[in-house]
Design a protein around this nucleic acid. Structure first.
Lengths: 341, 341
DNA sequence: TCTATTTCCGATAACGTTTCCGGTAACGTT
DNA sequence: AACGTTACCGGAAACGTTATCGGAAATAGA
């Protein structure tokens, strides 16, 4: 029963002109009589004609679609970034196709293939936490697919990258913990193969060194963004003979898991244990105690990534990869002690 | 510099066979010599050949893509549903294209056009809060596009619908407030043109009636899902001469706005004012006090919607629209008083 | 009046697939 | 020896556009 959609053929026949003329009218080409153009447009509107972008894409060899793949989007972080991407992409006449890898390398590979097969004009990508083999990505790049990486960035891949100053963010967060009197500061860390994890760890380490706080390896727990692991790690930390008096979490979801665990153990924040996160979302403001966190310009990340990608799409030959590092700042809330003066 | 991607032509020439043969090999058709098939597949793999789905879509007149449009996805509600959609869609060999309307009718229209133009095989849609004209949707349906509606559902449109038992959810939430001693219960309501808003309002009203609690019109505030309005409404309620002793919010984001407002006014929850929401997300568990809320089977909504859509796609002629109403239950947390015995 | 230019339009070949319709060769059956 | 079957393959049309090319008519320039 599916009624077929009208094509330029239908319009051409009804108006007794050629499909060339119809095509010209629809994509307002210069050499056409204003009257016939109007006739075509009127009929098109009357038939509720919608151009078949598939045919156009095949012919023009471009889809005007940019793909976005993120590990997940149930936390607000990636959705907010996608918002930023969509704004600049739509403004430039591009559509956005969103996929999620679910933190699975296999799905990432599969989705990437699908993107390549659908001939997206470019891709904005945050890799999986388990992505340690980059052949599928490099293969796509070899095919000429422009890719911009963000958030989860890795040295082995080349291409434009958008990241934030993870090192500085971690440094100032840990410094703040030290300055408010904490001495045994644990770190719920991210994956070490990713720049984001390494930089935050380094910021943590250097802040400790700079303030002559001894580094203890058993206080560094790798949670690696996997759900539930932060809770287990926190539990281990809390039952140590010499309990830490502060936690610095690699991101907010990790911090919130820790917060719940601490609360369940009947300890108070920040009196027994202070807690700082790395902001993925505005939600940290709503938990109690509200979360001290490093904030990053989320919206800007998406917009910038899209801009870089569009630039590369439009001039692929003279394009030189750029790495942008956006600034981070600390927002002090209730989960850390007030600065003593 | 963009290297062109290999086509079945390249394979055919290198192997000295026709493109028909290559095509047969790639989509393992029956009548082909196993040896030539192997040769084709080997070369395809070696060239890293990826079929051009655009050409396939044009030829086969279907894209194997289902579109999803939601009002927003920075809150966890819609992303969770999309997760459910993706699972069943991917399992059935479909890709999912996600768009958001940003609660704007204009963007909804534009995106819908884009979906129609890209010839998605079907659409799962939650309309905007300001969508009161349905011509664009009906027009798409006339073109034969199968559409399944969810969450934001409206009587004027026909097609399969997936919703939850809003009436019952609201009823039991308000009943619980009454049974824990609340007498002046305000409602932060949703838009009245949407079934979801009406049903929750009716549940609220009927619960009051059933327990002989007088209905006061000035306690019903229409926040209509717009950011910030719940806060203003709550503020108005709190400064009334005769302050309500409970709030029932149409959803959790609304409830959380109210919670913050109440907290800022120095009032305590649930002692001064009890608060209940309608669960869009698991986040209600993390705020303090944790939020009493009506829970709905979020994941199931997406999966069911996708199933209904796929069924309609595969047998459009003998398809009869179905409306599914999923069950809701109440989770009692700290934002309402404990049941008195 | 004749040529040169402009204005508008049609025919047609692509784009990369799938699919229908044949066609050849090898084989088995009478 | 003639025929029907089978197994495999190629040709070519089609999907709905865009873009190139050339041609006819109208206009301009001399």
């Amino acid at each position: 029963m599916r009624s077929k959609q009208p094509t330029i053929w239908d319009i051409a026949i009804k108006l007794n002109v050629s499909i060339s003329t119809v095509s010209r009218a629809l994509r307002n080409a210069p050499d056409i009589n204003p009257e016939t153009k109007k006739a075509v447009l009127d009929l098109a509107h009357q038939l509720d004609y919608q151009p078949n972008t598939i045919a156009t894409s095949l012919r023009k060899n471009k889809t005007d679609i940019i793909g976005v793949m993120v590990p997940e989007f149930v936390h607000a972080f990636f959705p907010s970034i996608i918002l930023g991407i969509q704004e600049v992409a739509n403004a430039a006449g591009y559509k956005v196709m969103v996929m999620q890898s679910g933190e699975s390398l296999e799905i990432e590979k599969h989705n990437l293939q699908a993107m390549v097969s659908s001939r997206v004009d470019g891709l904005i990508l945050a890799i999986t936490r388990e992505t340690n083999d980059y052949e599928h990505i490099i293969s796509a790049q070899r095919k000429g697919l422009p890719i911009v990486f963000f958030n989860r960035v890795v040295d082995e891949l080349q291409g434009s990258k958008v990241m934030v100053d993870d090192y500085k963010g971690a440094y100032i967060a840990v410094q703040h913990l030290i300055q408010t009197g904490c001495r045994r500061i644990a770190h719920l860390a991210g994956p070490e193969n990713m720049t984001i994890g390494r930089n935050r760890l380094n910021g943590y380490l250097d802040a400790l060194k700079a303030h002559q706080v001894p580094i203890e390896d058993e206080l560094i727990m790798h949670c690696d963004f996997v759900d539930g692991r932060a809770r287990a790690c926190t539990q281990r930390l809390l039952t140590m003979e010499n309990r830490p008096d502060a936690l610095f979490a690699v991101n907010d979801p990790t911090a919130i898991e820790a917060l719940i665990c601490i609360r369940e153990n009947g300890l108070s924040i920040p009196d027994d244990i202070a807690l700082a996160g790395f902001s993925n979302a505005p939600h940290g403001a709503f938990v109690t105690p509200s979360l001290t966190s490093v904030v990053q310009p989320i919206h800007e990340i998406g917009g910038l990534a899209a801009q870089l990608l569009l630039r590369q799409i439009k001039a692929p030959q003279q394009f030189i990869p750029e790495t942008h590092v956006l600034d981070t700042t600390l927002v002090i809330r209730q989960s850390t002690r007030a600065k003593p003066e």
